[in-house]
């Protein structure tokens, strides 16, 4: 790493001679080892999913939720330093509530992302703070339909149809690129999301994971952000595992053919 030893990477808000802010780049590094999170923007709504690595069997299954709600119609999932993620969500909730009490109407997703982008960006400007150690994927439905955004430690905030972050993001991204976002429905996307998380987990197979999926759709949830029902989650996970086995079998067959 050329950045080290130059002294330009020791403090936030300092530019290096070639115009980089190293502390922001290092913050991205914190994200790159976290559990994979994905978001899918469908024809009729949003699906969010996350891979939760199980570090101890003493952890209570089904608790320690990673997907959170910012407002009734907006959900968020993040990878990286989890306490920073909670800070981000708390700020999002504050923004949403302030907006609602002021304008008497729920905040639109693009406007919320604008405000959150500014907030996160601020944490790159001063040497008295550090950038957020999370990449967050925010999805929601408003009057203009479904929206999906991803926001980085730099404050950069882009709209996506399929977004992925965390350790398995490369695998997840290449899978997301195969989807047809014009036609896919949330119901189909739930299964796809489970499959993608399962595939992204391949790189980290020595540890078990727990799957968490939420959705927002006018039909399924009346525009509210909710966790998918238990039975659907179990079905999705089963689907993902079966697909995986089939793939493996195919691979084995191929190998046999080759030999």
């Amino acid at each position: 790493m050329t950045s080290i030893g130059t002294g330009y990477d020791l403090s936030n808000s300092v530019f290096s001679p070639d115009g980089r802010n190293f502390q922001v780049e290092y913050a991205m590094k914190a994200v790159e080892n976290g559990g994979t999170s994905i978001g899918i923007k469908c024809k009729d709504g949003i699906v969010l999913a996350v891979e939760k690595i199980i570090n101890s069997k003493l952890l209570v299954p089904g608790k320690n939720k990673r997907i959170q709600t910012i407002d009734k119609h907006i959900g968020v999932v993040y990878s990286g330093l989890l306490p920073d993620g909670r800070h981000f969500v708390n700020r999002g909730r504050d923004e949403a509530q302030t907006f609602k009490s002021f304008y008497k109407t729920p905040i639109s997703v693009p406007h919320l992302m604008d405000r959150l982008g500014i907030y996160v960006q601020n944490y790159t400007c001063y040497n008295s703070v550090r950038p957020f150690g999370v990449v967050s994927i925010v999805g929601g439905i408003d009057d203009d339909g479904p929206h999906l955004y991803m926001i980085e430690p730099s404050g950069a905030c882009w709209g996506y149809t399929g977004a992925a972050t965390g350790k398995g993001r490369q695998t997840a991204k290449s899978e997301l690129e195969k989807l047809d976002y014009e036609t896919i429905t949330v119901k189909e996307a739930v299964k796809t999301a489970a499959k993608i998380i399962h595939q992204a987990h391949e790189d980290n197979k020595d540890k078990d994971y727990e799957l968490e999926i939420s959705w927002i759709s006018l039909e399924e949830t009346k525009g509210r952000h909710e966790f998918i029902p238990e039975d659907l989650l179990a079905e999705a996970r089963k689907f993902a595992e079966e697909e995986d086995e089939e793939d493996e079998e195919e691979e084995e067959d191929d190998e046999e053919m080759e030999s």
């Binding site: 790493m1 950045s3 080290i4 990477d9 020791l10 403090s11 936030n12 190293f22 502390q23 290092y26 913050a27 991205m28 590094k29 914190a30 994200v31 790159e32 080892n33 330093l81 040497n127 008295s128 703070v129 550090r130 950038p131 150690g133």
Partner: peptide, 17 residues
Amino acid sequence: NNYDNDSVTYSPTGRLF
């Protein structure tokens, strides 16, 4: 280790010493 003086500095690997 220059990266462990305060909690607002990330190490190049993204850790907070």
